[in-house]
């Protein structure tokens, strides 16, 4: 079994998320009439919410970066490599798009069989062919592992649990200002708490995608080099920004504390590089 430790951790966090969802649906059923209609509304509503978030999310992702179809002549090597890697991973070749994002970046949207990988022109410019292969393999792993769908479901659960908590507080009170305010506060706090677990899953899935990319191209070194190159460039640009905007950073700057790690979608870069090279 591949990535046993990670899969166990993901299973635990996934179970906790499912438990949150079950409790929310059960609570909705208990507090709002204990009928099958309420149960059906809660479940169908959740599925619809996730479906709409998925569809809108994909459309918005591509639109927000101005992604355009990747020309097969100009980027023939990328097309060939993605085709070969997709075959190795047992997935259909995703649609390839290119965008000017202002920073070196790449991301995958969609699901297995209907995925899209977007690569920024800046990333193509700074990485060599092998490093780019590592990045492409990582993004294809996200599609193969259904990570985008998983994260949308996670966010959907956080939304549903927050909404249910909010309405339970609202409908079991006296409808005065204190109840109304308490409902909003509880809804937000509960949703944020559930998001901590969703973000934990996001970080686990990055490690799994790294491991799958390493397996697909036979070595983790190119992806590790790519991450190193990007992170060094990022450090340099941050240093220059510190020189320019010291006061702004003093206001907005938040340290790399435990909280920062907990709210991050990605694991620390050093850890990923270390694992890829281990």
């Amino acid at each position: 079994m591949r990535h046993t430790g990670l899969k166990i951790r993901m299973a635990i966090v996934g179970t906790i998320l499912f438990a949150f969802y079950s409790v929310a649906v059960a609570a909705a059923w208990f507090f709002f009439g204990q009928s099958q209609t309420i149960l059906a509304i809660a479940i169908v509503g959740s599925v619809l919410l996730v479906g709409v978030q998925y569809k809108i999310g994909k459309w918005a992702a591509l639109r927000s970066v101005g992604a355009e179809d990747m020309d097969e002549q100009r980027y023939s090597r990328i097309h060939q490599r993605v085709e070969a890697l997709s075959r190795d991973m047992g997935i259909e070749k995703p649609t390839l798009k290119v965008a000017r994002m202002g920073v070196p970046n790449a991301f995958a949207v969609g699901r297995k069989g209907n995925g899209t990988v977007v690569v920024s022109e800046e990333l193509i410019q700074i990485l060599d062919n092998q490093e780019l292969d590592g990045v492409l393999a990582h993004e294809l792993s996200h599609i193969a592992n259904r990570d985008v769908v998983t994260m949308v479901i996670g966010q959907g659960i956080a939304s549903v649990v927050g909404i249910v908590a909010q309405y339970i507080v609202l409908f079991t009170g006296d409808n005065d200002i204190a109840d109304f305010f308490l409902a909003i506060v509880v809804g937000n706090l509960v949703q944020m708490f559930v998001m901590l677990f969703v973000l934990a899953i996001s970080r686990y899935r990055e490690y799994v995608a790294d491991a799958d990319a390493r397996e697909a191209i036979g070595t983790g070194e190119p992806l590790a080099r790519a991450l190193e190159k990007i992170s060094k460039g990022n450090e340099r640009s941050q240093e220059s920004r510190v020189d320019e905007n010291v006061s702004a950073l003093c206001i907005f700057g938040e340290s790399t504390s435990l909280l920062s790690k907990l709210v991050s979608t990605h694991p620390p870069m050093e850890k990923r590089i270390q694992r890829l090279r281990s």
Partner: peptide, 20 residues
């Protein structure tokens, strides 16, 4: 960052460089 409105899938592509 803990809000569902700026969830993980959105943050992966917005502002951040690859891997962060």
């Amino acid at each position: 960052l803990l809000s569902v409105f700026v969830g993980p899938t959105r943050r992966r592509r917005q502002g951040g460089e690859y891997g962060s």
